[in-house]
């Protein structure tokens, strides 16, 4: 498939329409000089990735992503940032001087992965076949069955991890009051 053939498919326009902003937003996440902006760019990147999921007919996961990531995780981020008194509008240097080695490492990762993708694709005769029609939404029921049958134990394990994280988070972030302070608190 040549590039011109590829670009002729409208669905690929949609892909580009999401992928390009996504990459740009991701770049801004790691280069922005304001933490809040970085977090908001992450929202953009994640929203685009949710769009890609819909493109890949994984609708449920897309909305899970929106609900959990945008609705909760990023809100938590912003919450945390603001509680630690994010300077409004002020820009600070959020990176340190390891920028170039880091860029080199990242490039290395990309190069190796890209090379691998290429090699494997060629080796296996390519996955270049067009995807079956869009709109073939996976029945959510299949997911549910997967969770409680085949993946029951991982599912429980993940639940356990979440619980542990919850308790851990509370334990870590809680301000320990001295007994005197507790008494004070009880008075009010």
């Amino acid at each position: 498939m040549t590039f011109s053939e590829w670009i002729a498919e409208p669905v690929n326009w949609a892909f580009l329409a999401m992928a390009i902003p996504m990459v740009l937003a991701a770049l801004r996440v790691v280069t922005s000089r304001n933490v809040v902006h970085a977090a908001l760019f992450l929202v953009l990147a994640l929203a685009a990735s949710a769009g890609l999921f819909i493109l890949l007919s994984a609708e449920f996961v897309a909305w899970v992503l929106v609900l959990v990531y945008i609705g909760a995780v990023v809100v938590l981020f912003l919450f945390g940032i603001m509680i630690t008194r994010a300077p409004i509008g002020r820009e600070t240097n959020l990176s340190h001087n390891t920028r170039w080695p880091a860029a080199a490492a990242a490039l290395g990762v990309f190069a190796v992965t890209f090379w691998l993708i290429n090699a494997v694709t060629e080796q296996m005769g390519g996955f270049g076949d067009p995807l079956p029609a869009v709109g073939r939404a996976t029945a959510t029921g299949i997911l549910g069955e997967g969770f409680i049958n085949r993946y029951l134990i991982p599912f429980e394990a993940v639940g356990f991890v979440l619980l542990a994280a919850l308790i851990g988070g509370i334990t870590l972030a809680r301000k320990d009051l001295t007994p005197a302070e507790e008494e004070e608190g009880a008075r009010v």
Binding site: L40, V43, L67, G71
Partner: peptide, 25 residues
Amino acid sequence: LEVGIFYALAISSVSTIGVLMAGWS
């Protein structure tokens, strides 16, 4: 949508971000 309610709940949570943005900025 097949996951209609889920969509509704997911989308309704987006406005939280807007509120936080407004409050912070």
